[in-house]
């Protein structure tokens, strides 16, 4: 085997992990959470750490729960609680909102599988 042969194999081996990293890292899983309110605009939050995020809306405080890379409204000041009924958001592109409180949450990622979700 010649030197360029070895070089080629070594370089390919070096690039391989990069390809895996780039194409597998996101794998359709959400990368971050976007919380939107008309007052504070779009705020990005990461999904790595399980926690509760408190968001001030027009009616009061909505609580957004982050767990295992998924998210949901776990507490809401609105009377109907539709936002809580809509359950966990699991896919990038998924969006739900508490309309009376004017708070929306969305999962987003650079390589999301869906550009929009119909329901």
């Amino acid at each position: 085997m010649t030197r360029p042969d070895w070089l080629l194999i070594i370089i390919t081996l070096a690039i391989l992990p990069m390809i895996y990293e780039r194409l597998w890292r996101t794998s359709g899983e959400a990368e971050y959470l976007v919380i939107y309110t008309p007052e504070s605009g779009r705020q990005q939050h990461d999904l790595h750490e399980d926690r509760l995020i408190k968001v001030a809306g027009v009616l009061g405080e909505s609580v957004v729960e982050v767990r295992n890379g998924h998210t949901r409204f776990s507490k809401a000041p609105c009377p109907g609680k539709y936002c809580m009924h809509s359950g966990w958001l699991t896919e990038s592109g998924h969006i739900t909102a508490c309309l009376p409180n004017r708070v929306s949450i969305q999962l987003a990622g650079d390589m999301q599988r869906f550009d929009a979700i119909n329901f």
């Binding site: 360029p4 042969d5 194999i9």
Partner: peptide, 18 residues
């Protein structure tokens, strides 16, 4: 066209496969 020693069979084969 690679100048110098150039690739051997293994190099060509890997190039072609990739």
């Amino acid at each position: 066209r690679l100048p110098g020693t150039g690739f051997g069979p293994v190099g060509y084969s890997v190039l072609a496969a990739l």
